[in-house]
Simulated scan of single mutants.
Amino acid sequence: MIVREARLEDIPALSEVAARSYRAGFASILEPDVLATRDPAFFAERFSSSWERVLVSERQGEIAGFLLMTDGHIDMLFMDPDASGQGGGARLLEEAESRGARSLECFHDNEGARRFYERHGWRVTRAYERDFAGRRRSFVFYEKSKAS
């Protein structure tokens, strides 16, 4: 897998990967009505104003995953369910760290993501609840020092 910066023409493929990944990753955490709102159109709108901050993991010319980062904070890291476990997420995380990523937020109950981040040296610095999609949700905040 290679990692590269996103291009404007990647938005449709990014949106499809995001929607599939979101449904797969959060099926046991979020309600079906919330998952239904996170369709490709939802993500296309989000990426239309943020694609320049997206890194793409590509496998054989196809987008396999992506990472969106703002000011050193990882907003999203998603891998297509069919590409999970093949190293693309680790490559995205490594590249983001080299570009200054130092924090991220994760659902408390997203055990797979939490294992992934902790395996790569990220540490929980606080746990909290906040509103998300109309309901109170539990989250954890991760940080990684430059020395890690």
Rank of each mutant, 00 (worst) to 15 (best):
R130E: 02
R91P: 06
Y22C: 08
E58C: 04
S15C: 05
A19C: 09
R114T: 09
E5Y: 08
L30D: 05
S50C: 12
S57Y: 04
L8M: 13
K144V: 06
V34Y: 10
Y128H: 06
H120R: 15
L68I: 09
E5R: 13
F26P: 00
F139C: 01
M76N: 15
G100W: 07
E52Y: 09
F132N: 06
S28P: 03
F132R: 00
A96G: 05
R38E: 12
L104Y: 08
R126I: 04
R20V: 05
G121K: 02
A41R: 12
A147K: 12
G134V: 04
I2S: 08
S148F: 14
S98G: 13
R23N: 11
G65D: 06
A41G: 09
M76H: 15
D10Q: 01
R136Y: 09
R59E: 11
G121D: 09
E118C: 06
T125L: 14
E9D: 12
M76E: 15
I63T: 00
E31A: 08
A113F: 00
F47D: 08
F42S: 07
S145A: 14
R136P: 15
S57Q: 05
D10V: 00
D39N: 13
S98N: 13
R136H: 11
A13C: 02
A83W: 10
F66N: 05
D33L: 10
D33S: 12
A18W: 06
R126P: 02
A13V: 07
E58Q: 01
F139M: 02
G25C: 07
P12G: 02
Y22S: 05
E5G: 15
E97A: 13
H120D: 13
Y128D: 01
L67E: 03
S28W: 07
K146D: 13
K144D: 10
V140M: 01
F66V: 10
S48Y: 09
L35S: 07
L35R: 02
A36C: 08
A44P: 01
S48I: 06
G87T: 06
S98V: 10
S49F: 14
N110G: 01
S98P: 08
G61K: 00
G61M: 00
A101P: 02
M79D: 11
S21L: 03
Y117W: 06
S28H: 13
M1Q: 04
F78L: 08
Y117K: 07
I11S: 02
C106I: 12
G87P: 01
G25V: 03
S28N: 09
S28K: 12
E9A: 10
R123V: 15
V54M: 03
I11N: 04
P40H: 03
A41M: 06
Q60N: 14
I63Y: 12
A44G: 11
G87V: 03
A36W: 05
R137H: 14
W51K: 01
F66Y: 09
M1G: 07
E105P: 00
R126N: 12
S145Q: 14
S103Q: 10
E9N: 05
G72V: 04
A44H: 00
R126Q: 14
D82A: 15
A13S: 07
A27P: 01
D39W: 08
S148H: 14
G72P: 04
P81V: 05
R102S: 13
D131I: 15
R53W: 08
R20T: 00
V124S: 08
Y142H: 06
P12Y: 00
Q60L: 15
A127V: 15
W122I: 12
L14R: 03
L14N: 03
E45T: 13
